[in-house]
Design a binder for these strands. Structure first.
Lengths: 190, 190
DNA sequence: ATGATTTCTTGATATTTGTCAAGAGCGGGG
DNA sequence: CCCCGCTCTTGACAAATATCAAGAAATCAT
């Protein structure tokens, strides 16, 4: 089983080996150089990408500032979910922070999954609902936690980010400045 | 066409009259008194409710404080989406702020929709993705806006809330205290 | 390695927001 | 109509966070 098939299984639940292979074969590999854009705000989002290696930053502009919505790491999917599913203009820009290898499925191929895999509709629904709950949790953390608590919670649950990802972007996605992040970090670490 | 059918159409896209009626008939009306719980944190969420009249508050506890996630108003659906779809314990408590009339569909009946309405899977998916994007937008507003800007944006887009809903709950769902809300409001209104 | 970038940290200070406490306004029930 | 409880407002102050500016540390290309 390839890494991609393994990950599809993780995301979409138990599938038969032949189904996994069918899905996996619809993904086409390609490379990104550091600084390349996988997607730009306002453009159509025609694919969903699985990250083999490298880091991708999902962000948008607000008052001229880049607000990082998320950093995507190897083993995960990245796309503008709404743009991909609804064919609406993308609200996010996705840029490679490092050289990256990804595998992408086009919308046309994605649509065929409903016929190729009988349970696809159900699996897809569960996937999207899980994405929804992640967002719900993030909002709740903004409604109920201070910057320091958000930092601590993120650190406890995503320690892997702290070695790989430029800290300024983590700060932005947690809703604080790089300076505040740095100070909170100093307080918590020793 | 009943109000419920009209609203189903708004949420789930164009449906034939007979399909609308089929769906509408699966909803059973019931009443809530002010203070009644439609759902409690940690419990199973076995239904999705459409609000005919009244106000419902969706909240959860954090450090002993009630954090309001949303206020649901007539013409909209209310449920714990993740709990309903994934059969996981509810993360929210839903309580009637006023006497209320709602119509609810049980999970069992909801599951039959896939067979009763051919396009249901697609319509449902679009619905959930829209819910997801609303959450995405809310997070982005927390990452990029001040309390005052969040207030202003919400006021511009949901003026109807300001006549109906106790302001303290709007404050909480915008992520600020009632006092800050009051001061921001004073500044913006004249 | 060396210098040039970029990222991170630190300090001083300003601004925003929260907390606590008190009072004003308002609506419902007797 | 008046009292009671609840909500909203206001003020004084404290705490959290942002901003600006400078310097330290890490990273990268040569």
């Amino acid at each position: 089983m390839t890494e991609l098939e393994q990950q599809i299984k993780t995301y979409f639940g138990v599938l038969r080996p032949d189904e996994l292979q069918t899905i996996g074969n619809l993904f086409k590999p390609y490379s990104l150089k550091k600084g390349d854009y996988l997607l730009q705000e306002g453009r159509r989002c025609d694919k969903m990408s699985f990250i083999q290696s490298g880091l991708l930053r999902v962000y948008a502009l607000a008052d001229g500032k880049e607000i990082t919505q998320w950093i995507s790491t190897p083993g995960y999917f990245v796309t503008d979910l709404a743009g991909f599913m609804l064919e609406s203009p993308s609200r996010w820009t996705i840029q490679a922070l490092t050289d990256a290898e990804v595998s992408a499925i086009s919308r046309e191929n994605y649509k065929t999954l409903t016929e190729l895999v009988p349970r696809w509709n159900e699996l897809e629904k569960l996937f999207i609902v899980k994405c929804f709950t992640i967002m719900e949790d993030r909002i709740f953390s903004h409604l109920s936690k201070t910057a320091e608590e958000r930092y601590q919670f993120f650190f406890d649950n995503h320690r892997e980010f702290f070695n790989q990802v430029p800290l300024q972007y983590i700060a932005s996605m947690l809703g604080m400045t790089a300076e505040t992040f740095s100070r909170v970090r100093k307080k918590q670490l020793p």
